[in-house]
Design a protein around this nucleic acid. Structure first.
Lengths: 337, 337
DNA sequence: CTGTTAGCGCTTTCAA
DNA sequence: TTGAAAGCGCTAACAG
């Protein structure tokens, strides 16, 4: 592997000039620039990012912290962030928390210290010590899916999205509407569970519909959890005529449970999810679409702008719109089957 | 951010001793070791990986190259690899090719040069120049999903897996079996399309069933492609009684098409996929399960062992088993609905 | 426009 | 067991 010194020697210039030419800096004669770049390509030279980082203090790496990777939402986020970073010449360093202990270890050790220039936090609700730890790093931090004073953030309005879903069911004449929810008690989880629950209750209240605690069942944001939650609702003395699941994946679980009970969707029970998961269309599931990749690109781009100093005081918190997508699971006339 | 020099000063030793103590090297007195580690934690010291890399030549980074991120298979791979790397104290640098031009740019620039110690290639069929470029890097390379002489690899037997799927349909009495395939013409794609096609044909031949080119339809490994492929088969003068889709996602597309035509699964057309995608169970889809995370962990672990010099000549190519999973899409008696 | 010089923070001989 | 010193490859003043 050739070094800058060899390139400089071959081009007949000093290391400084070679460095300037290669980095596209000003004050280099066209002739020198030309000879340097020829020498570099002849030698197959690549700058040692490690040596460059040591002197500049910048790594050209952005750390991305996720609670999971193998879930549709996070994979989509990673894709969006990676695309934005790659375009700007940054590398993506992936930190997956995996579970509670992984999370604790991460915030204790902060393995990304001195390894990144900025951090993207994907849909994690951070507690105060965690936030403090991240701030203490001194890097710009971008939050995706949540907002917190002083941090850059991009998200959707989960409350409004949930309200839209429930209003759709109400407009169809349903009043006994079940909710398959996430866990709001665990303070370390995402905000969606909390916000989508609020939206659900708001919509019912606004419509003058009495809410029933029995109809709010925990589904843990998984297919299996959604299935069990639905089963529990179906065991009620008076079962719901419609269900809002806080995620499409929980809605899939509900579909399974409903089919087991030989109940037809939407004739016996109407169903709407949230996300517009990649398979929602084939499942013919009505849902509230959220722009995942767009959120990822937005936060990454703005973080990069901050790093480059070109942010120009652009607002700290961006809220992207959601959209109701009506399919066969609430409207039989739209059923594709 | 404190430096090694400050730690050394605070502990009353030289930088050399501090470095040795911190890295757990031998020849350090217990007393010195103790004082150094106290000083380090007092100061909140973290080694500058960048400076360390510059002198050792090792980065503690592993590059992972993927064609996509936002597809179930690759997200699962990333998760497995990340877990294995994290455990060994390595960071994961993500390189997503995205498309043909991204791929070309990647192999031309090789942006991971001087940034990683090893490379994992996830389910990409590399052509000779690409393979040469990767080899030329001088890093250990691990292939996931394919094998190539001289490289470490972990994969499944796609031919055998496909054969199993088709044999299952044959055992059910089907003879007119359609195939929804991937694109075998594009030399830059995965091997699965090619291998699963072979398995399909092998199984038919072994059973003495005449294969029909009209029944082999391109589905491009997407839901939409699977749907269109199925539509085309249903338009044939004599439609198939069973379909093998080379991926679960294409099978989902087929389910959609079949429902549109009011055909029942499996009564009118039996259907089997490949992968055991996370939603295959809720779709009640029979399939051939492949251990994705296990493949990822295996290749990452062995790559790390090679790096550590502890590989001990462990075989270069590991083939993990697949498993037939029978559900309601081929066996009505097992239907969960 | 170009070259000289001084480190960035660390590991690793080599000597003591 | 410990320390001094020499770089790893590069960038960024500072002169010229």
């Amino acid at each position: 592997m050739s070094s800058l010194a060899e390139v400089a020697r071959r081009a007949g210039v000093s290391k400084a000039t070679a460095s300037r030419a290669l980095s596209g800096a000003a004050h280099v004669s066209p002739a020198a620039r030309e000879r340097v770049s020829t020498a570099a390509s002849d030698l197959g030279y690549v700058v040692s990012s490690t040596a460059a980082s040591l002197v500049t203090g910048r790594t050209k790496n952005v750390g991305v912290i996720t609670p999971f990777i193998n879930r549709w939402f996070f994979a989509e986020v990673l894709d969006g962030v990676e695309t934005a970073l790659r375009q700007a010449g940054f590398d993506l360093l992936l930190y997956n928390l995996g579970d509670g202990s992984g999370r604790a270890r991460f915030f204790e050790l902060l393995p990304l210290r001195k390894r990144v220039d900025a951090v993207v936090v994907a849909s994690l609700v951070l507690d105060e010590p965690e936030l403090a730890a991240l701030s203490g790093l001194g890097y710009p931090v971008g939050l995706l899916g949540t907002a917190h004073g002083g941090f850059l953030s991009t998200r959707i309005d989960d409350v409004a999205g949930a309200r839209t879903a429930v209003e759709h069911l109400l407009s169809l004449g349903h009043e006994r509407i079940g909710l398959i929810s996430g866990d709001t008690d665990d303070p370390l989880r995402f905000t969606p569970p909390l916000h989508r629950l609020h939206g659900y209750r708001q919509a019912l209240r606004a419509a003058g519909v009495q809410s029933d605690p029995d109809l709010e069942v925990l589904g843990y944001f998984t297919i299996a959890g959604g299935s069990e939650a639905c089963e529990r609702m179906l065991a009620l003395p008076e079962r719901p005529t419609a269900i809002f699941a806080e995620s499409d994946e929980m809605a899939y679980g509900a579909i399974r449970a409903l089919r087991r009970h030989r109940l037809r969707v939407p004739d016996d029970v109407a169903l709407i999810g949230f996300d517009d998961h990649v398979t929602a269309e084939v499942m013919d599931l009505s849902t509230v679409r959220q722009p995942v990749a767009a959120q990822a690109v937005d936060i990454a781009t703005r973080l990069l702008a901050t790093l480059a100093g070109t942010n120009g005081e652009a607002g700290g918190d961006v809220v992207l719109p959601t959209e109701l997508v009506v399919r066969g699971s609430t409207d039989p006339s739209r059923s594709v089957y």
